[in-house]
Design a binder for these strands. Structure first.
Length: 423
RNA sequence: GGAGAGGUGGCAGAGCGGUCGAAUGCGGCGGUCUUGAAAACCGUUGAUGGUUAAUAGCUAUCCGGGGGUUCGAAUCCCUCCCUCUCCGCCA
């Protein structure tokens, strides 16, 4: 949600932003509803004010019966008008609220204008792309040859876009999770959280997945209000919802490993083969809750924290600054980290690090007391994968494969694999 | 799943039809004292929206959510949600 006052007073900023994002939100509808709502609100308030004054005279003074009756009659009349006005106000408020939930965040000035992912800007890259002396296989082939990724069984028990990972591959997959959590907590200074992966709809609204992206969420049947999390960003960020945080508690840096569930509606035909795009995958997620003036520094830090995993694993990657149309709904600025996949001969997204500024905080009512102004202000929230485990797993398999189909375990993972060097 | 208790300001906790946005304590902030700090003492301190240049005034709303009764509801009624305790079941 963006500041209603900004929309009202600087509609041009919002319009420009919508056009940069190639978003077809009807700002005029919003503006006229909002104006009408404020107008009727004044009306309602005046009626209530008069009523309150009258009502107070009844209890406190020694009016005779007749005078009392007269006032009661008057109040009855006011109540009639109020009923109408309040109903109108309620209708308009709901309309305004619903529309405002569909407005995307304002982009940061440093975000380049662009039409699609081709306009994303490379910020930096790291690592040497390995020259293979043989034709590298993709992870699906490696999994098939070793027998340690079983898509057929997954399909039997769950359907498409699921995988069963077996034996050494399962260990490798688990080791990655453990490794990432250790680095983020012990080296990068995050506090580890274990959180529910079933959450209330308010949380999804808070972080921006609802109402706009409802079709991508898994809803729990027979439960009015519960969903599977699409990312740990949702439970972690919502930990501060509806609260006023002590200034000295900031910044908060959280990390959690969770499964993530996504319907992947609208991505039919994309990445259908293999483990790139699954309905269920593991992710280690980083979330920062910070003061506004620190959020862009925090974005750099968070991105580097995510990168540090790839550096330690020795996986080549590049960091891309997303252009205007590619930046997510809730984000003001996003860096994607893309890892090299030899089988596809290109970089693929493995982490997305975003500064949402106050967009989520406003939806969640997450504030802190600014000691300088003694005012409550919205915090800034950031999130990023540190990293997507399934995709990291794929990257390790493909980049560390040997000609005979075995995988050399990256050195940093060996302690987690009981010292095994090759699987 | 069954039985009971309860949800009030940052926290704890009173209020149980009008004078209550709400006692009191803690915490926070400001001050006195002090070389400094602590203690003590004094003062101050809820949120959100509208109006506004205003973080000034004025105003409305908020005592878990929604609905109802009433001239008037934190207080009475209905309903939903949540938390806690005990029993049952269970990894």
């Amino acid at each position: 949600m963006i500041d209603p006052k900004l929309i009202r007073h600087d509609a041009k900023i919002v319009l420009d932003n919508l056009s940069k994002r190639k978003n077809d939100f009807k700002l005029d509808d919003y503006l006229s509803a909002e104006e009408a709502a404020r107008k009727i609100q004044t009306e309602v308030e005046n009626l209530r004010s008069t009523k309150n004054k009258l009502t107070k005279t009844i209890g406190s003074s020694k009016l005779d019966e007749k005078a009392k009756e007269k006032i009661v009659d008057e109040v009855h009349e006011i109540n009639e008008s109020l009923k109408d006005a309040e109903a109108k106000l309620e209708g308009l408020s709901v309309e305004v609220k619903n529309l405002s939930l569909l407005l995307p965040n304002i982009l940061h000035e440093s975000v380049p204008d662009g039409n699609d992912e081709k306009d994303n800007v490379k910020i930096r890259q790291w690592g040497e792309i390995r020259e293979f002396s043989f034709e590298p296989k993709d992870h699906t082939q490696l999994g098939e040859d070793s027998g340690w990724i079983d898509f057929q069984s997954a399909s039997k028990i769950s359907g498409s876009r699921f995988a069963v990972i077996i034996d050494r591959y399962a260990q490798l997959h688990r080791s990655l999770i453990h490794f990432m959590l250790d680095i983020q907590t012990n080296v990068n200074g995050y506090t580890e959280y274990y959180v529910p992966s079933i959450i209330r709809s308010e949380c999804l609204e808070g972080t921006g997945q609802l109402p706009k992206f409802a079709e991508d969420q898994y809803k729990i049947e027979n439960e009015e209000n519960l969903y599977l999390i699409p990312t740990a960003e949702v439970p972690l960020t919502n930990l501060v919802r509806e609260s006023i945080i002590e200034t000295n508690q900031l910044p908060i840096k959280m990390v959690a490993h969770t499964p993530c569930y996504r319907q992947e509606a609208g991505s039919y035909g994309q990445d259908t083969r293999g483990m790139i795009r699954q309905h269920q995958f593991e992710k280690v997620e980083l979330v920062h809750i910070v003061k506004p003036e620190e959020s862009y520094q925090a974005l750099e830090e968070l991105t580097e924290n995510a990168e540090s995993i790839l550096v330690k694993l020795g996986l080549p990657y590049r960091v891309m600054l997303l252009c205007s149309s590619d930046t997510g709904f809730a984000a003001a600025k996003t860096y994607d980290i893309e890892v090299w996949l030899p089988s596809q001969n290109k970089y693929r997204e493995i982490s997305s690090c975003s500064n949402c500024e106050s967009f989520q905080a406003r939806r969640m009512k997450a504030r802190f007391k600014d000691l300088k102004t003694n005012q409550n202000e919205y915090v800034h929230t950031l999130n990023g994968s540190g990293l997507a485990v399934g995709r990291t797993f794929i990257a390790v398999l493909e980049n560390y494969q040997n000609e005979d189909g075995t995988i050399t375990i990256p050195e940093v993972l060996r302690p987690y694999m009981g010292g095994i060097e090759i699987i």
